[in-house]
Amino acid sequence: MSLPEYVGPCAFGIKMGVVLPGSDLKSMIKSEIMKINKDGLLEDNDALCVTESIVARAQENYITTEEIAEEVTDKLNLKPNDTLGVLFPILSRNRFSLILEGLAKAVPRGKIIVQLSHPDDEVGNQLIPPEKSQALIDKGYNVIKAEELEEDCIHPITNVNYLKLYRDIITEQGAEAELFVSNDYRVILDYHPQGVLCADIHTREEHRSKLESKVITCTLQDLFNDSSKESWSEWGLLGSNMSSDNKLKLAPYNADEFACELQKEILDATGKKIEVIIGGDGAYKDPSSGIYELADPKPAFGTTPGLRQHMREGVKYKYLIDMYHNQGKSEKEIQEIIAKESEKKKGKNHEIETEGTTPRKIEDILASLADLVSGSADAGTPVILIKSI
C-alpha cells in the first residue's frame, strides 16, 4: 500500500504497547516496523522518530532527590550550612521542582538563593505581566524582592504561583529560602553564595563563563553526566522530567548509539535503510501562550549519521512562480524550472531562490514535527514514521 506520488512529506503516529523500565525497546519498535513494512508503508530514506522518554525509561535512567543532593554537594563542595545560588531556573513543576528539592536537601541548615528572570523565564513562561515588568524597569529597579510581587506571580496558563511554590519546596527541606527577580546575572554574587548552579538551559555556558572566576559554578549539564554511574546522561539534568514523588527521569544516554543500532536492526529485518531520531521537545513557540516549547537542550538527542548536521533548504516557490509567470511561461514550464531549481540548490549557497526557506537542521525540523504529532497531541504514539523527507 504505497502512498500516491502526489503525497508530499507526511508523518504517522505509531501506536505501541506500554514501555516499562527495562523493556527491550528496540525489539518492540522492530515488531511495529515489521507490520509497517508488510503493509508497504516503509521505504528507503524514511525517518523514524522515537521519543526520548521511552528510550530513557527502557534504560531505567532514574535518579532520586537524595542523589541530586549528593551530586551537587560533590560538584560545588557544599556543606550543610552553606548558601547555594540558583540562577535563572525555568518555571516548571515537571522540569524543575524536584531538582530544586534535591538542591535544598544539599544545604538543609543553609540557604538557597533563587534568581529569576522577568517578565518570563527563558522558555517563555510568564513570571510577572510584561507591563508590570516594564514599569519596574522604568522606575530603575534592578532587583525586585519576591515579597513585592506575590500578587502578580500567578502563571497565566497553569495558575501556579512559582515564587510561593519554589519557596515552599526549599523550606520544606529545612533550608532558608530567598527569592528575587533580576535580569542581571551578576546580582546573585551580592548574596555571597559558596556555589552557584546555572540552572538555565540555552544560555548556561554564557553565564557559567562569566561567573566561574568569582565563585564555584556548575550547570545542570554537569550533574549526572558521568558514564561510570548507573544512571547518567551526556546532558546531565538537562532534559530531565519528574517521574514520581522523589524520582526524576534523565534524558537517555548514548542516544546516537541507540539510533544507529535500531537502524541496523531494521535494515537487517526489512532490507530498508531508514534514518532514526531520538527526539525531545520541538523547537517552536506557541502563538497563544508565547511559551517556547524547547525545555530540552535540543530537539534531537540522537540521530543516525545520515541526518547529523544536514541542512534542509528548498526553493522560494512564491517568488519563482510569480517571476516566471510574469515572464509569460506556462504552468508546465514553471513546474519544470522549479524541479530543476530544487535539485540545483541542494548543498549550494543560500541565494534569492531559497531565501524564503531559511536553512535549518533537518534533525531539528523532523524532531519538531514528531513532537507535534506525538507529544503535543498526547496521542499515545511514541514512535513517528516520517515519509518523503
Score class of each variant (00 low, 15 high):
Glu101Lys: 06
Ile154Asn: 10
Leu3Cys: 07
His192Gly: 00
Glu212Val: 03
Arg186Val: 03
Ile154Ala: 06
Leu385Ile: 07
Ser330His: 01
Lys346Ala: 00
Asp268Thr: 08
His118Met: 08
Gln263Met: 05
Val187Lys: 00
Gly239Pro: 04
Leu366Thr: 05
Lys329Leu: 12
Ala251Asn: 14
Asn254His: 14
Gln221Asn: 11
Ala370Gly: 09
Pro287Cys: 00
Glu5Phe: 08
Tyr319Glu: 12
Gly102Gln: 03
Asp168Tyr: 06
Gly302Trp: 02
Leu179Lys: 06
Thr73Lys: 08
Asn161Val: 03
Ile99Phe: 02
Lys15His: 13
Asp226Gly: 10
His310Asn: 02
Ile201Gly: 04
Ile144Asn: 10
Leu127Phe: 14
Thr217Val: 03
Lys132Leu: 08
Lys79Gly: 07
Pro299Asp: 04
Ile170Cys: 04
Gln59Ile: 05
Asp256Leu: 05
Leu98Trp: 06
Lys318Tyr: 12
Glu206Leu: 13
Ser92Cys: 00
Ala251Cys: 14
Tyr6His: 09
Tyr6Leu: 13
Pro382Met: 00
Glu148Arg: 08
Gly271Ala: 13
Ser368Gly: 11
Glu293His: 13
Leu320Asp: 09
Gly328Glu: 00
Ser182Thr: 12
Pro305Gly: 12
Val7Ala: 04
Gly282Trp: 02
Asn125Thr: 08
Tyr292Asp: 15
Leu211Ile: 07
Arg204Cys: 15
Phe301Asp: 06
Cys218Met: 11
Val50Cys: 05
Pro130Lys: 05
Leu127Ile: 08
Leu103Pro: 01
Ile170Pro: 01
Ala11Ser: 15
Leu98Thr: 06
Phe180Ile: 10
Glu355Asn: 15
Tyr319Lys: 06
Ser209Gln: 08
Asn81Ala: 05
Asn349Met: 14
Lys387Cys: 10
Phe180Gln: 07
Thr83Ser: 05
Leu307Glu: 06
Phe88Asp: 01
